[in-house]
Amino acid sequence: MEKENKILEAIKVAFNVEGHIAREKRVMITANKDIVSSILLFCKNQQGYIHLNHMSVVDRIEDGKFELNYIIWSPTEKVTIMLKTFIDRENAEMENIDSIWDQANTYEREMREMYGIQFPGLIGRQDFALEDWDEMPPMRRDFDTHAYAEKTFYQRPGREDAKDVREELTKQSGEVIPDFAKKYSRE
């Protein structure tokens, strides 16, 4: 765990952030949104974490937050850093980091389209994968995709008696679906 400790300490000393080692070759850091780009730059320029693996969003609707994850990797140390930050769901806005990694542009355009997160200064077409979309960004959890499909597309009769596969299976096996999972069942 030497390499992991080294990078974790370096970041902690420089930025005063929370972090821990999740397992071998994986360091998790949670930081305020204002210093995310500084940490990324620090890791890239001074610690050799030159590769941006992934950027992703989790919709934490219960907390009114979006969780943003930046996953970076060092080819020399072979350690992955997962940098996590939370931003407000209302008027979500995050710093644009495509000047650090060009490929971040693609991820950010997708986040903008699918979650409605704005990145000031982001250059690129508004449409990413969708075309002429004028509803709420579809990957937000408060977007009701079933209701949207019902009002937009023709529903062929005959689907009404379709059963929820999980419910039918649990009826057979006697397993109980926990409450939090029931929410996603059909009714």
Binding site: P138, F143, A149, T152, F153, Q155, R159
Partner: peptide
Amino acid sequence: INGGMYYDSYNTINALDR
């Protein structure tokens, strides 16, 4: 025919013959 397993997707049509 009727949307299949994507019947509730926001992005796929459900009945081609329309």
